[in-house]
């Protein structure tokens, strides 16, 4: 699925969160949206999912602009939101069943995928499947929510802060999964403050700052052919001095 954001502007009251933003998300690529808190990353995701409408500009899906995104397109997209909006009254198994039915996954395939992904993400997956979502830790909830987001094998996967609250091993697993998930038909867009996983995913880096796109290029360009660390490059692009990140305290 080819997604294009064309001169999108979004305001909340008087505050302009996104101003004339244009990005193309091409098939077969992985994109990482970086930016400080409140830069508009989640707003961009909400625009892509058509939860909110741009005040100006358009978003096209495979070249088409839809006033209401049809279900056929929505079902080709997977979304891990932040906050997660989980159905806490259900067990992890029931939640995944519910999501599978919602996305019309064939029951047999649903069962296979559910087992496969849960087995990969959890050591004691059968116990986790039985537990109610309300009883799971925040990291476990994140992993179940992730399983729900990829259960229908979406072509366009949107992940808002997928690595936050995850332990290092789970983060690594998720990172490896995303690397293997990406193929010519699929697109992954994620936001993250954990820069350690970017190297393995080798995404196109998009920096959102001051209501607009400040940077949009490959990871190799971003790190000047790996001569700089990712965090150094980010600080440079955001024009932040090292001294401003240091503070003396009594």
């Amino acid at each position: 699925m080819q997604l294009s954001v064309n001169n999108a502007t979004k305001k909340y009251g008087k505050k302009t969160v996104l101003d004339q933003v244009s990005i193309d998300f091409n098939q077969g690529n992985c994109y990482c949206i970086l930016g400080v808190n409140g830069a508009g990353k989640s707003t961009l995701f909400n625009l892509l999912m058509q939860f909110i409408m741009a005040d100006a500009g358009t978003i096209t899906y495979d070249g088409h602009h839809f006033p209401v995104l049809p279900s056929a397109y929505k079902k080709r997209m997977g979304y891990l939101s932040e906050p997660l909006h989980l159905l806490e009254e259900l067990s992890a198994e029931q939640y995944l069943q519910f999501i599978g039915k919602l996305y019309e996954v064939v029951p047999k395939i649903l069962e296979e995928r559910k087992e496969k992904i849960m087995h990969f993400l959890f050591e004691d997956y059968q116990e986790v499947l039985r537990k109610r979502m309300a009883t799971l830790s925040s990291g476990m909830k994140k992993k179940v929510a992730f399983a729900g987001a990829i259960l229908h094998s979406p072509e366009f996967l949107l992940l808002d802060e997928p690595f936050s609250t995850l332990d290092p091993i789970s983060g690594k697993k998720l990172c490896n999964f995303l690397s293997s998930y990406l193929n010519e038909q699929r697109t992954i867009v994620f936001s993250s403050h954990n820069l350690e996983y970017l190297e393995a995913l080798n995404p196109v880096i998009i920096i959102l700052d001051e209501s607009g796109i400040q940077y949009n290029a490959s990871l190799a360009d971003f790190t000047k052919n790996h001569s700089q660390s990712i965090s150094q490059s980010l600080m440079e692009k955001l024009k932040i001095n090292d001294s401003s990140t240091v503070m003396q305290w009594d």
Partner: peptide, 14 residues
Amino acid sequence: LRNYWFTLDRANPS
């Protein structure tokens, strides 16, 4: 139960 609303709407805006 607004999370149900979010989840349903994510897959099908009907």
